[in-house]
Design a protein around this nucleic acid. Structure first.
Lengths: 270, 270
DNA sequence: TTCAGCTGTGAAAATCCTGTGAACGCAGGG
DNA sequence: CCCTGCGTTCACAGGATTTTCACAGCTGAA
């Protein structure tokens, strides 16, 4: 299951003090966040694949209402929370009727802001049946969340639930090295016992099934002493000289996921 | 744009003045409303088939938190708005984290309360009253929402209400894998208790009736560890030739190719 | 090159999941 | 009051899936 899918939040606010404090907390909570100091076109918001948007009304100026209307209309699945200093009932009602999900008065406590954003995206997530997110493609692979299954061409990989969740987790973090503990924690839902090899075993199963359907491609790479990284790359015309070598060697990933440490980049524009 | 399907609201509050004013407005807006002056067991809330719940914290007393938790856990689709006089950030955060959707401080303007309730219950996709699109056909099957019944040719399947709702839900999501919890929640209207096998039992009944009227077709497929998927496909199984592509019946995408973890195909020769 | 520590493998053992038949309880109709 | 239809709950059996283990193959560093 996916208990706390991480939130991708954008904050549009000029109150640097508030933003700083909030950022500290959202980061600690593992949210992905992007801070903006002025409104940006809705199109760009779309490209960010956001989960939620926190916006200070005062930044918007006169265009406020039309801007909110455009954003809400364009991104029906985006949770929009507005905050503002003084405001009237009429303003709040107008915003909510426009499609805004919540309105908080400033000053406000960052913890409450976060709780409200969580509440808003919780509700949003429930209503959409997951169809929304198009299939994720990587190499020859097509991962379909709505089918709990991955395909190559029209052939299914026959993944079990765990195998699928593992693959999905890795693929979502394409290019990033994920540590075993982190993987286990997020797929199994609780902490990994010391010495547990389950992750390794499932990685093997995944590799087998991937290889079976999509030979000629390497998907999962081992980072010795650290964990695994998903990054589809065609097995170059390399001679069958070093068969099993492709797994660990290359420390330099094309995507720039550098050294053997997990990079917790806060916001990777996919 | 959103015809705002009428809201079924329950109000639990003892502040008769506020309730009176609010009621006047909700009534004018065409909402269905029920006013209560004390908390009632979550089961009864379930029976009311509510859309939203407005509740004054002071009515709940000591049981407040556990009550809210029970209600929110049991009715994940119910929009819950709490209002209260004085409150602390910690209280509001706690409530929101528990599953409450919004918190309003009293005194508050009825119009804003309504706007917030609307915002909270804005998106819901269920409750197609059916008639809009003609009968849904799938395989040899014809599902008539206006009659709460499914037919093969001219013969009725004699589905009970629950069976029909289950079939309709599955058929509406043709090709998609639906998890048991999601199915239960949408057909039964509240959260599935851990270990409940009702869905499985109804799936069996459905398969029996489907098989009886339309042998030679497989409709409901099991995805081990996940749930079920509706996808009508003729049982070409007469010859174990090489069932590579026969499945792509109606939909164009590789939808039909997912013979992945099909454990049961509704065709069980003794 | 050697060594201690990791990781890949295969298979056995332990669990979990689903299909099924039947008993139960409830409510409405006769 | 009894009967019948419907929904729920149980317990069991057969499989499918996960875990666990012991070993062999690698890796990186001394």
């Amino acid at each position: 299951m996916n208990p706390q899918q991480t939130i991708r939040l954008a904050v549009i606010d000029q109150d640097s003090g508030f933003v700083t404090v909030l950022s500290k907390r959202t980061e600690a909570a593992g949210w992905q966040q992007r801070v903006l100091t002025s409104a940006i076109p809705p199109d760009e918001l779309v490209a960010m694949k956001l989960n939620a948007l926190l916006i200070d009304l005062s930044v918007l100026g006169d265009e406020a209402w039309s801007y909110l209307e455009r954003v809400c209309g364009m991104l029906p699945d985006l949770g929009v929370v507005v905050c503002a200093g003084r405001s009237t009932v009429a303003q709040r009602v107008r915003a909510l009727r426009l499609g805004v999900d919540d309105w908080i008065g400033k000053p406000c406590h960052p913890e409450e802001v976060m709780a409200r954003i969580e509440a808003v995206s919780r509700r949003r997530r429930r209503s959409r049946t997951g169809v929304e997110a198009g299939p994720l493609v990587a190499g020859e692979l097509e991962i379909r969340a709505d089918q709990f299954q991955a395909f190559v061409g029209d052939g299914s990989l026959d993944l079990t639930r765990r195998e699928f969740e593992l693959l999905q987790l890795l693929a979502d973090a394409k290019g990033q090295v994920l540590e075993r503990e982190a993987i286990y924690q997020r797929v199994w839902g609780y902490a990994m016992a010391h010495g547990d090899r389950s992750v390794d075993v499932f990685i093997r199963k995944l590799r087998q099934k991937l290889e079976k359907r999509s030979p000629g491609w390497g998907y999962i790479h081992t980072h010795f002493g650290v964990g695994y990284r998903f990054d589809p790359e065609p097995i170059g015309g390399t001679e069958p000289a070093m068969p099993a070598k492709e797994a660990a060697a290359s420390t330099e990933a094309p995507t720039g996921a550098s050294d053997s440490q997990v990079v917790h980049s806060s916001f990777t524009p996919a």
